[in-house]
Design a protein around this nucleic acid. Structure first.
Lengths: 126, 126
DNA sequence: GTCGGAGCTGGAGCCTGCTCCAGGTGAGCT
DNA sequence: AGCTCACCTGGAGCAGGCTCCAGCTCCGAC
């Protein structure tokens, strides 16, 4: 079972070392294993969790919710709650995609309108 | 031509009154017309702009970029730049949608996995 | 004419989510 | 033994984007 230094964990997860420590302090991550000398040693499981947390974070889940999810992940009896939380989050992602598509259309329309204006004014000039 | 009080402009645009003032100070909005007594009077054009700014803001455009867009909007010669800015922004929206879809799939997979686990454990218990 | 509510200004404050020290320790090389 | 360098802790600081406040003014209704 592979292990990872803080630098490797940061590299692979895309979080900074400081952020990893911050997440641990906040209870988003469990207490990470340490060497005899006190250095953190991340496991494959930790890296997996980090990968998933990154997905959640990148889709706008707040630190507070991340903390709830992290805490629940340490208790096997909370799977139904975790499912509920993830479903709610999936809904919010879907809603966001819908919203982005609507706005994208509007931005494209505006851009087209600008282009029309530009054509008009250059035609008038010629 | 209809005009709007600050409260109405806020209501219709979805920005707070404080935010409207802040945007004006930042140069995102033009200097808004005033009554003799110094109160702001928003025009239809202002409301239109606000609606579009809301789209840009809601799709993650920074205040700094909003300011650039706002400034350009006061100079007719900047249409090509505005088109460029909006196209770049449209690209970022498209990229974001792609990213969200990918993550959504992953979240759904995870949820399905949890559900599988839950079924397994409840089966084992029975 | 006075009362109450909406608005004005300039500036301070706040929340989120990191990010950056200072001062000290563990560990592999030479 | 001595270097170097990644890491440790606790706590301060920061950037973005508002949000709130004090103290004052305007103005429509009564």
């Amino acid at each position: 079972m592979t292990t990872y230094s803080p630098a490797e964990a940061a590299e692979q997860s895309g979080f900074s070392i400081d952020t990893l420590r911050y997440y641990e302090r906040e209870g988003i991550l469990p207490r990470i294993e340490r060497t005899a000398g006190g250095r953190r040693v991340y496991s494959d499981g930790d890296l997996w969790m980090l990968g998933f947390l990154r997905c959640l974070r990148d889709t706008g889940m707040s630190i507070e919710q991340l903390r709830r999810y992290g805490e629940m992940s340490r208790d096997d009896n909370t799977m139904p709650e975790r499912v509920a939380l993830l479903e709610e989050h999936a809904d919010s992602i879907r809603a966001r995609i819908t919203e982005l598509n609507a706005i994208l259309t509007r931005v494209e329309e505006k851009t087209d309108w600008y282009r029309g204006e530009l054509r008009r004014t250059s035609d008038a000039a010629s």
